[in-house]
Design a protein around this nucleic acid. Structure first.
Lengths: 110, 110
DNA sequence: TTGATACATGAACAGTTATTCATATTTTCA
DNA sequence: TGAAAATATGAATAACTGTTCATGTATCAA
């Protein structure tokens, strides 16, 4: 056998780096404001002001959270005049959202 | 039409309560220690001391995090003598873990 | 250019949370 | 019963995070 660490990446083995990134990734979904924004963007792109109005949040709060989501490449901006439209930037986001949602609804169901 | 709030639960509509619970739920995955514990338990039940040893964590840290996961019904304990074996308590946990993992690996892939 | 609109950002504050250390509880075995 | 092993818990601390408030930047229209 070989005890080189390169060989260690067998099936089901996940490096600590990946586990760290994974927890960092889930953190983005672990905030009410962000999850509400993500949920809203699931149905298409929305401007910053519209997000704030529809979610009844201050514009500053929305901008701050959008910056976090944008830095993480979860949302992407598009400028149109003075407005900024944000939309989800990753195909996985909806999947993860719905997987969690299914869990919650299933739990409430019984 | 009927404006009773009961009728409001149309497709794609999620109440703020559920969105709040959803974010609370994702928080459990948003910590490195907990995600490492969850990952370890994916392959079966493990005792507290074994978790601490395999993850190189203090026993106290593991117990504290296990309590959080236990309170949230994400893990369940089983006593055997003086040992406590913990295992995942919900079929969805592995699914959510893997959905996130797929995202991370896919992101690193390109 | 000036004013107004839309958005971004920085600093400060408050609330939350994970870890550490000490100690308590539970079970087994001599 | 007493000691040891395995785990749980409480309090304190330090670090992190979201919101607020004030202000800065960019774009358009007159």
């Amino acid at each position: 056998m070989n005890n080189c660490s390169c060989i260690k990446n067998v099936k089901n083995e996940v490096s600590m780096d990946v586990l760290f990134e994974l927890s960092e990734f889930f953190k983005f979904f672990g905030d009410t404001t962000r999850i509400r924004i993500i949920h809203l963007l699931l149905s298409g792109e929305v401007s910053v002001n519209d997000i704030a109005e529809k979610l009844n949040l201050e514009q500053s709060v929305v901008s701050h959270q959008l910056r976090i989501l944008r830095t993480a490449n979860l949302v992407k901006p598009r400028r149109d005049g003075r407005k900024m439209f944000y939309s989800l930037d990753d195909e996985h986001i909806g999947l993860i959202f719905n997987t969690g949602l299914t869990h919650i609804l299933h739990k409430k169901g019984k």
